[in-house]
Design a protein around this nucleic acid. Structure first.
Lengths: 229, 229
DNA sequence: GGGTCTATGTCGCGC
DNA sequence: GCGCGACGTAGACCC
């Protein structure tokens, strides 16, 4: 990892073209050749960057100024990406050996929600029983396929935040599943920790039941002994 | 902007919980208090981070180790975000005054595509005439509302890359617009620089016309004198 | 503040 | 490899 603080101008050409006027910025060059151009604000997203795999070539312009050219292979049939960094003055330049990072451990995303609901489908609707998780269809897997107390098929779509496109997704599944005479009729449940008003309205309009999920309560139902982390 | 290279362990709790074991990483602390934890690989996304507005508090643990606690207000109704960085050894620590960045200038994003197509709707379909850009509906704005040579309404959805969700989006608009007896029937055109096969199939299935857009050619049609950049 | 849409989105999984 | 959905998505824009 090389860290450079420099007055520089940056030009990107690829999926779009972008330009950064001359100013002082931080340049981060990672071991894989990827380059990040950061300013002293914004978010975690750099002003400009080049993703690996790519190569950095350090050269000089006619005027003798330092110029880095970062190139990547074209994503598909588009123009190849290039990042040109013209350096006027270097304030800092250092190299660091970081080694390989052990990586991030996550907990609490949608997959976990799906696992918990698969274990406790009754919290969505009393008497609901799991048939299978990730039930395959031609247009993608249904999160949970279940049967209710009367044996009627129920497709469950799980989201952390329930928005309109989640309802669209479940609608597509239901449309397809209801063409199967062995399954039909199939009802839908849209389950999420939080459901936006418009999504709730659209779901209601399409006969889909909304279910709010309490993640902490579900985790409480779960056996806590196997969660040491 | 403060740049620190240190052996550290990071724990995040907020919308999810995440853990980074002890290893050497780059810590970037921006002027607004935001913190980025980068390893020597991956992409521009940090392993972990805290977005502004947030505050960094530097303290020491019982063992005398340095610990940074970064806190942010809760995003909405969730638990407040915290990032705990336990520092074992500092390899590098420097401060830099970057000043305010003039910011990024972009060209070639969807908005430009929309502007160009609004000026030259005939490139989508001979005789097509613009009614208005960003035509408002209850579920969001239609990119271009037009009329064809016969006076029939045509809704145009523009994407840089045409994928299945873009077709879904246009379908929603068409369904709504066709309920309006003053407009109906409304046809759809799905315009993009590149259209994925699945999107093309879905569009065809729904009677939506696909139109490939040549951005460079369109820009050529445009008056070049007002594009100095 | 809520709703919607864009993004050089990125990331990860499954086929 | 592509397709597809999730993301601590973040940002911009409009009402």
């Amino acid at each position: 990892m090389r860290l450079v603080v420099a007055r520089c101008q940056v030009d990107y050409a690829g999926r779009l073209t972008a330009h950064l006027p001359m100013a002082t910025r931080v340049l981060m060059i990672k071991a894989d050749g990827s380059v990040l151009v950061h300013s002293d604000g914004g978010s975690y997203k750099p002003l400009n960057w080049m993703s690996p795999p790519c190569t950095v070539r350090e050269g000089t312009t006619e005027d003798g100024a330092v110029e880095w050219t970062v190139t990547a292979r074209a994503p598909k049939g588009a123009t190849p990406d290039t990042l040109r960094i013209l350096i006027e003055e270097i304030h800092h330049d250092s190299n660091h050996d970081l080694g390989i990072d052990p990586g991030l451990q996550k907990d609490g995303v949608e997959k976990h929600l799906q696992e918990l609901l698969a274990e406790h489908p009754g919290t969505l609707l009393p008497g609901l029983a799991l048939v299978r998780r990730e039930y395959p269809t031609a247009i993608g897997p249904v999160d949970l396929m279940c049967r209710d107390a009367d044996g009627v098929s129920v497709a469950v779509e799980i989201k952390r935040r329930g928005e309109i496109d989640g309802v669209e997704q479940l609608t597509r599944y239901l449309e397809l599943l209801n063409r199967d005479p062995l399954l039909a009729p199939v009802r839908g449940i849209f389950a999420a920790q939080e459901i936006k008003p418009q999504a709730r309205v659209l779901a209601g309009d399409r006969g889909i039941t909304c279910a709010l999920v309490d993640y902490d309560a579900l985790r409480g139902l779960d056996d806590p002994t196997d969660r040491l982390f």
